[in-house]
Design a protein around this nucleic acid. Structure first.
Lengths: 106, 106
DNA sequence: TTTGTCTATCGTAATATTACGATAAAAGTT
DNA sequence: AACTTTTATCGTAATATTACGATAGACAAA
């Protein structure tokens, strides 16, 4: 089909998968690293940094926004993106807890 | 285009993204949790546990195998899947390091 | 108000993912 | 050898993702 049967899985499983999916593209990893290492958080600077078009970068930013990992604030005509610390910590805790739990198995 | 420009990003970024992508579906999260919590690691038992067809489960197992997070051993006509601890730890370290590094930003 | 800058969105095309039934392949059993 | 069980793969369809040019909308500056 192509339809993801999300409703068949529990909230936690969907949440872990959703955060992971958002991290599942090297451009989005690069965006997050850029936000972490630079003073700048301007969308335009991100576009210059990445080997992708402005439209594509905007799409990746939208995906990160969708899961809440970043948020954007308007600063004149520009937009300043920033990690949402609250959500970021939630993702970090969820993922690391999951990975520790699974590790216990064998 | 639809072509992922992986070659434009560095090895580490691709590796983090690739592990994340493999974790980016609730069925695969459920499979890993099942492997962690049950004594069984038989493919057939996983199929029974999940609300998905045998063919679909096999596809998800193949994706987890592709990135190396699990490995399968033949046990008669059955296949016993297991977390690959070495790769699992690598993924865990990569992801948690990444998330800690990015957190430092704002 | 006109102009320029910045970013989101639209339209579109290519590719990837998800899902399942059917079939094939591998191994043990009768 | 024929049969059963188990799992991978093939074929196919629906949907999602990735990418980009073009355009629209928002804002500041001239």
């Amino acid at each position: 089909m192509g339809l993801s049967k999300k409703e068949s899985f529990d909230t936690l499983q969907n949440r872990i998968a959703d955060f992971s999916k958002a991290l599942g593209h090297p451009a989005r990893i690069a965006i997050l690293q850029f936000l972490a290492n630079q003073n700048s958080c301007m969308c335009g600077d991100i576009v210059e940094e990445l080997p992708l078009s402005q439209a594509t970068v905007s799409q990746h930013l939208a995906e990160l926004k969708r899961v809440g990992l970043i948020k954007g604030e308007f600063d004149g005509p520009k937009v300043c993106y920033c990690i949402d610390k609250k959500v970021w910590n939630e993702a970090k805790d969820l993922l690391s807890q999951f990975m520790v739990d699974v590790k216990k198995c064998c």
